[in-house]
Design a protein around this nucleic acid. Structure first.
Lengths: 227, 227
DNA sequence: GACGAATTGGACAAGCCTGTCTAAATTTGT
DNA sequence: ACAAATTTAGACAGGCTTGTCCAATTCGTC
C-alpha cells in the first residue's frame, strides 16, 4: 500500500500524461468557476500535480486558458466531422436513420464533456478573447453547417427530401433535434440518453413533416421547388 | 458649467434612481466579467456612484448579485407574458402573423438587454446558485412553454394547424425561430433586426410546412391526428 | 434657509491569488 | 547504477479586491 488514502489516487504518470491531466483539470475548473474565479492551486490539486508543474508546462494562467480552448476546439471539431461522416447518404429508413444520426451527433459532439465545456467557455469568455474564438467560429459551426448542408443537399438531389435552401435546412435540423434540450444546455448539464432520444425523435419527425418529398400520385417529381 | 468633461455625465438622481443605476451597472459588469471577475469599484463607476453607496444599498457582492438576478428574472418574465398575450389567436394571415409574433418574441424577450443578460448569468453561474435559478426555471421557461403550447393548441382546435403534442410544437417553434441566431447568441451579441426577421421567416415557414393543416379535397378534416 | 439623511472620496486592514524562487526528492534515460 | 531532467512543497513578494470606517460635502425636505 504505497499511497495513502488521499481523496483521489493518482498513479505515476509520464511528463506528457501530466500535461494532459493539467489541461483536463483546467478545462473543468475554468468551466465551473469562470476564468477569473479559476484558481491555479485548485487546478493543480485537481490534476494531482504541484502548482509549480502547472507553471512549468504552461507558463501562466492565460496561456493555460488558451491551451484549454485549443484542445477543446480541436477535439470537438474532430468529433463533429467524424460524426458527420456517418450521415445516412443512402438511407434504408430515412426517419430511423436520421434519428440515429441525430443521436450520434448529440452524444459525440454536443452533449459530451468536450462539447459542453467548449460551449460554456465560448459563452462565458467569448467576448474577451474574440481572436481566440474566431478560429473556432470559422472551423467549427461554419464548416459544420456547410458539411451538413451538403449532405442534406445530396439527400434532396437523390429524391429523398424537398429542400429549398440546404444551409437553412441544416441549421433547422440541428435546432429541431435539440429543441427539447435547451434548458438542460442552459444550466450546463448533460441530458440523459432518453432525453436525447426523445428530442431527436420529435425533432426528426417534425423535420421530415416539413421537408419530406411530397408523394406525388404519378412519377414526375423533378420540378418541385417551393418558391 | 458645474460638471467637468468626465467621460459620462450623470445628472442628479434620487435615492431609488441610484439603486436602479447600481443594479443596471452590476448586471452589465457581472455579464461582461463574470461573478468572480466583477469589480465593485467598476460597478460603482459605471453606475456613476461611489463604492460606499453600492454597499449602502446592497450590503455585499453576493446580495447585489441576487438582486440583479431577481430584477432580470422579473422583467424578463413580464416581457415574455406581455408578448405571449399578443399571440395571433385569430390569424388573418397565419404565416405573416406568426412571423410578426416571432419577431416580437425575439425583440422583446430574447434578444433585448435583459434577455441576453439573464441568459448569460444563468449559463455562467447557474451551477453555483441552483436555488436562485430554480425560481427562474419554474416561472420562466416552464410557464412560457405551457402558455405558448396552450395558444398553439387553440390554433389547432380552431382548425388552423395540425398538431400532435402542443408542448413539443411550442418548443420546436421557438427552436426554429431562433435556429439562425445560435452563433450570435453563443457569443452574447445582439442580432440585427434583419437577422431576426430572416430567422423568424425561415423558421415559421418550416414550422408551417410541418404543422399546417393539410388541405383536404372535400370538407371533413376532423379526424386528422398523425399517430 | 436649516436640519437630517444620504453620498462621497479616501484611507485602511485583511485575505486571496498569481507568479517566482529554492532546495530537496523523485523520476527518467542511458 | 548514475546523471540529468523533472517534480515537489513551501516560502515569499507584489498586486488586487472586498468590506469597513470616517470626516466632509451634498441633497431632500420642511
Amino acid at each position: 500500500m504505497k499511497l495513502g488514502v488521499s481523496p483521489d489516487i493518482f498513479p505515476p504518470r509520464s511528463h506528457e500524461a501530466k500535461r494532459v491531466s493539467v489541461v483536463d483539470a483546467a478545462a473543468s475548473v475554468f468551466c465551473r468557476e469562470g476564468y477569473a474565479g479559476a484558481n491555479i492551486d485548485l487546478i493543480a490539486a485537481e490534476a494531482g500535480v504541484s502548482r509549480q508543474t502547472v507553471y512549468n508546462h504552461h507558463g501562466d494562467k492565460e496561456k493555460l486558458f488558451v491551451a484549454v480552448v485549443r484542445d477543446l476546439t480541436e477535439r470537438c471539431n474532430a468529433g463533429i466531422f467524424a460524426t458527420i461522416a456517418t450521415f445516412p447518404d443512402q438511407p434504408a429508413n430515412l426517419e430511423a436513420d436520421l434519428i440515429a444520426f441525430a443521436v450520434r451527433m448529440n452524444r459525440n459532439c454536443i452533449c459530451n464533456r468536450d462539447g459542453r465545456f467548449l460551449r460554456k467557455l465560448i459563452q462565458a469568455e467569448g467576448g474577451r478573447y474574440p481572436e481566440l474564438f474566431a478560429e473556432w467560429r470559422e472551423q467549427g459551426p461554419g464548416r459544420t453547417w456547410s458539411a451538413l448542408a451538403a449532405r442534406f443537399a445530396r439527400l434532396a438531389f437523390a429524391g429523398h427530401l424537398s429542400i429549398g435552401d440546404p444551409d437553412v435546412a441544416a441549421r433547422q435540423f440541428l435546432a429541431l433535434v435539440n429543441a427539447e434540450l435547451q434548458i438542460t444546455f442552459m444550466l450546463g448539464g448533460a441530458p440523459t440518453e432518453e432525453e436525447v432520444l426523445r428530442s431527436a425523435t420529435d425533432g426528426v419527425h417534425t423535420f421530415l413533416s416539413a421537408f419530406a418529398k411530397k408523394k406525388l400520385p404519378a412519377g414526375k417529381q423533378a420540378m418541385l421547388v417551393h418558391a
